[in-house]
């Protein structure tokens, strides 16, 4: 049994758990975007940052991957943590203006508006890669992947053509935290031959 503190509250955990696992077990809320229980964490969105302190020493880490250790002192809402979250959300607001989930989160964390220019008002993908990880780890087909690097990165299929590997299961849409996969799904699975909106009952 490992004992440590989250926001000064003593908690117990087992080896192999992360700080986030433990926090959730104790009902301590830490926001996440790229985390999904069905796939391995990847640490992309950085929203789940927490601060570790030990005397004067302090460090910001991501709770979704930080392994629990005896005697940790974790703070989920310190000034440093808030600064990181604020900027992430402010940047996401301008990067993914079309996502209501981002707007909701931003509001929750007190970010009302963004100082940055909006490049694409339609954009809603935060490139958290959940869809890619789900396609690989849960569905097992790896139909989609990250394409390109850095600022040019997008979610896509080989050659940006409908993928032969895709089984059209829609898991990517289901796990997507911002709803961005929805409008990308047809690029992946191909245009359906028939699209029936509604059947008469």
């Amino acid at each position: 049994m490992i004992e440590f503190k989250i926001n000064d509250q003593p908690v117990e955990a087992q080896a192999g758990w992360t700080v986030l696992d433990t926090a959730r077990q104790y009902g301590i809320h830490i926001p996440t975007l790229c985390h999904h229980e069905a796939v391995e964490p990847s640490g992309n969105c950085r929203l789940c940052v927490v601060e570790l302190r030990d005397g004067d020493w302090s460090k910001v880490v991501i709770s979704c991957m930080y392994p629990v250790q005896d005697g940790l002192q974790v703070y989920t809402d310190s000034d440093r943590v808030k600064n990181v979250r604020r900027w992430i959300l402010e940047m996401l607001l301008s990067e993914c203006p079309a996502s209501s989930e981002i707007q909701r989160l931003a509001q929750e964390y007190g970010v009302e508006q963004t100082r940055f220019a909006i490049h694409d008002p339609e954009e809603d993908c935060i490139l958290c890669g959940l869809c890619v990880r789900t396609c690989k780890e849960v569905v097992g087909v790896s139909a989609i992947s990250m394409v390109g690097r850095g600022v040019h990165k997008v979610i896509g299929t080989p050659y940006m053509m409908p993928s032969d590997a895709c089984v059209a299961c829609g898991s990517c849409v289901t796990v997507c935290p911002t709803g961005a996969m929805r409008r990308r799904l047809d690029l992946v699975r191909g245009e359906p031959k028939t699209r029936m909106a509604h059947s008469a009952v």
Partner: peptide
């Protein structure tokens, strides 16, 4: 007759799905 019905739903169109179930 209509007590048993067949409908079609695209997984990417949850709004349409709702129309289906509410209509039924």
């Amino acid at each position: 007759r209509r007590r048993v019905a067949l409908a079609h739903s695209d997984l990417n169109q949850p709004e349409e799905y709702i129309k289906t179930v509410e209509s039924f």
